[in-house]
């Protein structure tokens, strides 16, 4: 009976995790050092979904993995920068603001779609309950 509520909830949760990763990417758009302060540009996070909230064969969706995008970094010529290499170039994260914003909009809309599905399931449950009244 409550299956579709759980399915929609897992969808909302997965999209929220995706939005968290996007927020992380945007927050670190200019980060040139890693967590311990060494010069290493941040690499954008990519969220990967898989079917089944609690593993294969179960209903819903889950975040299977959050991987680092190993694509080419943004190279900017800044010889005065403390993190510049011998050639005078600084590696900036491979985060593109437009891509992240588009992804964020898509995640928010997908979240809304799950909320709408939840609402529909709720209205069906209410009309079933009205049979008793």
């Amino acid at each position: 009976m409550f299956g579709s509520f759980d399915i929609s909830t897992s969808g909302m949760q997965a999209q929220r995790v995706r939005l968290d990763a996007i927020a992380m990417n945007l927050a670190n758009i200019n980060t040139t050092r890693n967590a311990v302060g060494e010069p290493e540009a941040f690499r954008r996070l990519v969220t990967i979904f898989a079917e089944g909230a609690d593993g294969p064969g179960t209903p819903g969706v889950r975040v299977e993995q959050i991987v680092r995008d190993e694509g080419p970094l943004r190279r900017v010529h800044q010889p005065q920068h403390p993190d510049a290499g011998p050639d005078g170039y600084v590696s900036y994260p491979n985060v593109d603001m437009v891509t992240e914003n588009v992804d964020a909009i898509e995640a928010a809309r997908a979240f809304e779609a799950n909320v709408a599905a939840f609402e529909m399931a709720k209205s069906m449950l209410v009309s079933s309950l009205r049979l008793l009244a």
Binding site: S4, I7, S8, G11, F49, G60, A110, N114
Partner: peptide, 19 residues
């Protein structure tokens, strides 16, 4: 039928971004 189908459609919507 509609109640069973609701679960299948919710599953499709939840997996809208699943490769």
């Amino acid at each position: 039928f509609a109640e069973a189908r609701r679960d299948v459609l919710a599953q499709n919507i939840a997996n809208i971004d699943t490769p």
